[in-house]
């Protein structure tokens, strides 16, 4: 008891400081750094791009329109055969600037400058000129963190727009993703447009994702294709967040 007391007398200050530091670190961890991201947003607010003068990446947008067209054409054909299909109405999106990247390189995140105060919620889908970018995984009052499609942990069900063969993509850390097909012999060609499939619960169906860059048919257990994501994530300045409520499921969570 006495030694304990003497130790305390000598190291009181140090022990308190260490306790304080560890405590605040734990707090920041449990709140997923919300305070830090809020502070970051306040700091970078003056440097954010002016959304009124959107410098649209003309080329990327053009590509997106082309992809949408391909998707719509092939969807249209299916619908004619199906008749009685009810289309979904598109909800208005929230335009948000991209203010930061992930705090470590093993994760592919971006930080957007709009949060729960502007109505963003977890699970919302983020689109940019060019196609899908990712989905919101964490929200603070004025920022939201987006898990990009190029993150290896994000898995999305996709379909080849032309032939409707399905598979899923796995991010590859840059602007590439690998698509694994469910079928042994899929009908897929270089340059085919890839869109989110109706099996995907995290994303609404029919959003443009990218195009096929190369195909490896001999891959086991299923053929693979390398997909080039069309949204130029590395130099995006803004993106649009669309509401999307996903059915409850335990899979594909980061």
């Amino acid at each position: 008891m006495f030694t304990l007391r003497r130790w305390w007398d000598r190291h009181r200050l140090q022990a308190t400081l260490i306790g304080l530091a560890v405590g605040s670190a734990l707090f920041l961890r449990q709140t997923e750094g919300a305070v830090l991201y809020e502070a970051y947003q306040i700091l970078v607010r003056p440097f954010q791009p002016n959304l009124e003068r959107k410098t649209v990446l003309a080329n990327a947008q053009n590509q997106e329109l082309q992809q949408r067209l391909t998707e719509l054409e092939s969807q249209n054909q299916q619908l004619r055969a199906l008749l009685g299909y009810m289309g979904e109405t598109k909800k208005p999106g929230i335009t948000a600037p991209i203010v930061g990247r992930s705090a470590d390189h093993w994760w592919q995140h971006v930080l957007m400058g709009r949060g729960s105060r502007d109505g963003v919620q977890e699970g919302y889908v983020v689109m940019a000129p060019g196609g899908v970018v990712g989905r919101v995984i964490n929200v603070t009052p004025s920022t939201s963190r987006v898990l990009l499609l190029s993150d290896p942990s994000s898995r999305v069900g996709v379909t080849v727009s032309r032939s409707r063969f399905m598979g899923y993509i796995r991010g590859q850390s840059s602007n590439r993703a690998v698509m694994e097909f469910f079928d042994k012999v899929p009908d897929v060609r270089q340059g085919d447009v890839i869109t989110t499939s109706s099996l995907s619960q995290l994303f609404p169906a029919g959003l443009p994702v990218g195009r096929v860059e190369s195909i490896n048919m001999s891959k086991s257990p299923a053929p693979e294709a390398v997909i080039e994501l069309t949204a130029p994530v590395s130099f995006l300045e803004w993106a649009i967040i669309y509401p999307h409520t996903q059915p409850k499921s335990g899979e594909a969570k980061n």
């Binding site: 260490i18 670190a25 920041l28 961890r29 750094g33 705090a103 470590d104």
Partner: peptide
Amino acid sequence: LAGLILGLIQDGMTAY
């Protein structure tokens, strides 16, 4: 100790 504290914070900012 410094590694522990900063590691915890960075976990919060990315993933656990």
